[in-house]
Each structure stands twice: as structure tokens, then as C-alpha cells.
Nucleic acid binder design. Structure first.
Length: 417
RNA sequence: GUGGGUGUAGUCAAGCGGUUAAGACACAGGGUUGUGGCUCCUGCACUCGUGGGUUCGAAUCCCAUCACCCACCCCA
């Protein structure tokens, strides 16, 4: 117990972190090109923010949040998602007073109490972007395009982009009623989970995996047929924008985001290569969220991307992330004088940006070479009494085994070159 | 929350009721005096996730428990 990370959490060990850094750095650079600014918000927020933003009746709020009372009797919740905190901060600091639209990105851990499985953890990591202040479908297309371009820059290009419009609260309610009406006399034949969905979220029934439900659902009305004029026009607009950008998609009426704040655009990038949890990136528009949280009526759109899932996908499709060089120079020394000389040399090298290392376990020369080999040193410098006396050191190229003598004072020059 | 699977050294594992628990990799040391990667030798599980039980005898059978994995649900 003591030596076990809590269920659903994972340590990221040194032999893995470079992959995370690679992906995060690439994301930051991509954001920079899109003029999207990073925002860092606390790991925890007032519980009320998520209850309000994500929605009281969602699974996330109902049974997945890490919520506790702090010593000041405040109800605190560890971020289960990234959008609400950004919105909160945007409103709190009145960033809507800046030029609009405004674009933000974040790289954060998220926490949800769920039963872990492949691609699903209790602490997981998301990178996401948000665009506030425009309801133009150019923004939706930009968000989707960003995700698409970023993913392909990571070598992932066989994902399926599924888009849908879940309308605004008005047309969505009309549609839900139509759907309930359609399913009314089939209710008894629905699977148990779908019986539960009937009242709460009948749209979910549409993509139920049970064969019975799939049959029952045939001929059901489509959300897209119930969109109000405004929402329908927006969806057309979005498709035109995506077409113009050359982004392929399939319209999937089954896409229903599990967070209440979504309106109109909903989309997912899905893979079938990483198990059942194949959504690598999901997002959409949320035109009422900012106002709901107490800000002005400003629309927004964004996505969240799962870092673990992205990494799994890169792994699964053989996208190698090159491991950084471990070590440039190993300094092998013999004797006290040489050790002291080596210590100084190592420090100088490091100051110059050279990755240098020495043995501190008192290994003999053979052991030091072996050690240098294990550390994947590119060069090994050998220093002993002979060298110090003759003012020469030998530098061995560990790849080619070539060895040459260099005057002491020229070591740095030799290495840097 | 509901199902299914697995648990033997750092890793991958053999073993399937009977003397000292295979093997491989990794790791550590060595093969005579200042040079690695190859090769050779040596070392590395009083113990088989944990706790009970059955038995003359259990890593091997039974029960419980814990952990991990996978799927449903949901989503990143």
C-alpha cells in the first residue's frame, strides 16, 4: 500500500518523460503559431464551478469528482476538466476587456473517480485550447483544424474526425422530446442502461452498443433535422469551412458530449487502435457557459486532448519519439591529481553546455569505461598521471573506438567541435 | 457501480501435490598490473501478492483478501 501509487494514477518515469516533453513542447509551439496564449489555473476550484459549468446531472459531477472540504469549510474539487477553470479565470480577471476574440491553451492534470482501464485513469492529462468571443464558425473550424494539424504533426493521421451539432438548448429539447416520442412504445425492449438514458439523455441511446437497441433505434429522428434555423445554418457553415480547409470528417449524429455546456458544434477525433477508450480529442462550442458562470454573454469553442491517449496512439502506430542524448563526455580519471583535474574539467564542460559525467564510486579504469559505455557517452576523456605530466589527454570516440591525444588546454575546443 | 482475466526475482518467464523453485535478460564482481561494447567465470527468490485452510507434504488444491489488467458505463 505504502509503496503503491493510488489506484488509477501513474508515475511517469525518466525513461518516459522525454516523450511527454516532446508532445507538450510541440503543443506549445503549435499554439504559438496560432497565437494562443497559455493560461495556468489552480489544480482545484470551488466545487460549485463544476457543478454549474459541467452540469449537475452529468456523470462527472454526480459521481466522479474528487471533492473535499478544506479546513475553512469550503467545498473544493480537483479539476475534472479544463474548460470551466479557464472560463472562471477569464471572467474573474475581466479578460473580455482585451481584444476579442481571445485564445487560450492549457496543459493540466485532470481528476475523475472512475474505474481504471486502458486509456482511462483517475488522474490523467489534457492539453486543450479555447477561443472566446466569436460565434463565427471560422473559430470552430480553426479549433478543429488546430487539433487535426497538431495530431498529424505528431504522426497521427488515421484518426476519424466525427462532427455533429447538438443544437442550442431550445432545439435540443425539441429533439429530445421527439426522440422520446419515437421510443415511447419501444421502451420496454430497451436494454437496462438505455431505460435509464430515456429520461436523462435519450440521445445516448442512439449509439448504444447493444444489438437490441441498435435495431430499435433504426428510423429514429435525427438531431440534425430538428436544428433551429440558426443552428442549422451554423452547422452548414462549419462544414463549408472544413471543406474549404480540406479537412475530412464524417457527420455522426451519435456524438453527444457528456458535459452540459456544449451547444451546436460537437466533435471527436477517434482511433480504433488503443482499445475501447478511443477518443483522443473531443470538444465543441459552448455559447452559454461564460454567462452561466457569471460573465457577460460571450460565446466560446474549444477542445481537450488526452495526453496519455495520444502517447498510447503514437506507441501503437510505431511513431518513435527520439530519446535525447544521454551524455556527451565521460571523464575517466586515475589517481587523486587526475580526479581533481577532472572535477574542474567536468564543471567547465557543463558550464559550456556539454553533458559531462564522472565516476564517483571509485571504479578502476576498466570499470569507468564500462560505466561510460552504459551511460552512452559519445566520448571518453582519459586523465592519469602520465597525461598530467605530459600535458596531453586521450580522447576516445566511443562509437568508432578512435583515440587521439590532445593537449590539456585544448580539451574544451576538441570536445565542443 | 457491474462483469471477466492475471498475480513466481528489476524484467520476461518454466513449474500443474513430493528431495536444494528451471532458464533468459538486466544488474554486481572478476578473467594479474591504465580502456567499454563481444566472449568466459562467479554472484543474485530460506521463497512463489497477502492471510487462512486441506494434506504426512502446497508455488502447485480450497476460501478470503489485496493489487494490476481488460470490458461495460462514461469520456480525455
Amino acid at each position: 500500500m505504502l509503496t503503491n501509487a493510488p489506484k488509477g494514477t501513474k508515475d511517469i518515469l525518466p525513461n518516459q518523460v522525454y516523450k511527454w516533453q516532446h508532445v507538450e513542447n510541440a503543443f506549445r509551439e503549435a499554439c504559438d503559431r496560432y497565437v494562443i496564449k497559455e493560461m495556468r489555473t489552480p489544480v482545484f476550484e470551488h466545487t460549485e464551478l463544476f457543478a454549474r459549468g459541467v452540469g449537475d446531472t452529468t456523470d462527472i459531477v454526480e459521481k466522479q469528482m474528487y471533492t473535499f472540504e478544506d479546513y475553512g469549510k469550503r467545498s473544493i474539487t480537483l479539476k475534472p476538466e479544463g474548460t470551466s477553470p479557464i472560463v472562471r479565470s477569464f471572467v474573474e480577471h475581466k479578460l473580455y476587456a482585451d481584444v476579442q476574440p481571445s485564445k487560450y491553451f492549457y496543459i493540466i492534470p485532470c481528476f475523475r473517480y472512475e474505474k481504471p482501464q486502458s486509456g482511462r485513469l483517475r488522474e490523467f492529462h489534457q492539453m486543450g485550447i479555447e477561443i472566446f468571443g466569436t460565434d463565427n464558425m471560422m473559430a470552430d473550424a480553426e479549433v478543429i483544424g488546430f487539433a487535426s494539424d497538431f495530431l498529424s504533426s505528431m504522426g497521427i493521421d488515421d484518426l476519424e474526425l466525427r462532427i455533429n451539432s447538438i443544437g442550442c438548448p431550445e432545439c435540443r429539447e425539441t429533439y429530445r422530446n421527439a426522440l422520446r416520442e419515437f421510443l415511447k412504445d419501444k421502451y420496454d425492449d430497451l436494454c437496462d442502461t438505455c431505460k435509464g438514458r430515456y429520461e436523462r439523455n435519450p440521445m445516448r441511446i442512439l449509439d448504444c452498443k447493444s444489438p437490441e437497441c441498435q435495431v430499435l433505434v433504426q428510423g429514429a429522428p435525427h438531431m440534425l433535422d430538428y436544428l433551429c434555423e440558426d443552428c442549422a445554418a451554423a452547422f452548414d457553415d462549419l462544414k463549408k469551412n472544413l471543406d474549404a480547409m480540406g479537412i475530412e470528417y464524417i457527420v455522426d449524429p451519435g456524438i453527444v458530449r457528456g458535459l452540459d455546456y456544449y451547444t451546436k458544434t460537437a466533435f471527436e477525433f477517434v482511433s480504433n487502435k488503443i482499445g475501447a477508450q478511443g477518443t483522443v480529442c473531443g470538444g465543441g462550442r459552448y455559447d452559454n457557459l461564460i454567462e452561466l458562470i457569471g460573465g457577460p454573454p460571450i460565446p466560446g469553442v474549444g477542445f481537450g486532448m488526452g495526453i496519455e491517449r495520444l502517447l498510447m496512439l503514437m506507441e501503437a502506430t510505431g511513431k518513435e519519439i527520439p530519446a535525447p542524448d544521454n551524455l556527451d563526455v565521460f571523464i575517466a580519471v586515475m589517481g587523486e591529481r587526475a580526479k581533481l583535474f577532472g572535477l574542474k574539467l567536468m564543471r567547465d564542460m557543463r558550464k559550456q553546455g556539454v553533458k559531462a559525467e564522472m565516476d564517483s564510486l571509485g571504479r578502476n579504469i576498466k570499470g569507468q569505461f564500462k560505466y561510460a559505455d552504459r551511460l552512452e557517452a559519445k566520448y571518453t576523456v582519459v586523465i592519469g598521471d602520465n597525461e598530467l605530466d605530459q600535458n596531453m589527454v586521450s580522447i576516445k570516440n566511443m562509437g568508432t573506438s578512435e583515440q587521439k591525444q590532445v593537449p590539456l588546454q585544448d580539451i574544451m575546443k576538441e570536445i565542443v567541435e
